[in-house]
């Protein structure tokens, strides 16, 4: 049967080791190590009071993980502040249809503030949960595609 031939061909294509892949993957890794991503330094305070800087990418990654715990997906983050200071944020999130959005926004605000406090330390100038605005940008019924 020709279908058998097609199945056999697909199976062979699936199981065949791609020639040269080992060398190519090494080249790709080498190239990726030379690629940089632009980031913004944010002023933070260590436990001993010393000033340090963390990138906005670290903040956003941590926010993404934290927000995901609330069955939400972080869409965009806008950090507010002059220069290297962060005095608030606007979080755009997508979530599931049918949830109480006001309550959810409060929860996101609380959990996001905890991330800021953990990563930035004592924030100067200080801001509270009211410094974090939540915008719901998308609602979905599919829990796998928030």
């Amino acid at each position: 049967m020709t279908d058998d031939v097609l199945s056999r061909a697909a199976h062979a294509a699936r199981t065949q080791t791609e020639p040269g892949w080992i060398d190519i993957s090494a080249t790709i890794k080498q190239r990726l190590r030379t690629i940089t991503r632009r980031s913004r330094p944010i002023r933070a305070a260590a436990d001993n009071g010393a000033t340090l800087f963390i990138t906005d990418q670290v903040l956003i990654s941590a926010l993404r993980v934290a927000v995901a715990e609330l069955r939400c997906e972080l869409d965009r983050v806008q950090l507010i502040g002059d220069g290297d200071t962060c005095t608030g944020a606007v979080l755009e999130v997508a979530t599931l249809y049918g949830l109480d959005l006001h309550a959810l926004a409060d929860q996101i605000r609380t959990i996001a503030y905890r991330v800021f406090a953990d990563l930035l330390g004592p924030i100067d100038p200080p801001f509270g949960t009211d410094g974090i605005d939540i915008v719901i940008t998308d609602l979905t019924t599919d829990p796998d595609h928030r």
Binding site: I35, R37, Q57, I60, S61, R64, A68, E73, L74, D75, A94, H145, R146
Partner: peptide, 9 residues
């Protein structure tokens, strides 16, 4: 380069 913007949807 686009990884920080990957929403995961």
């Amino acid at each position: 380069k686009a990884l920080p913007d990957f929403r995961g949807d």
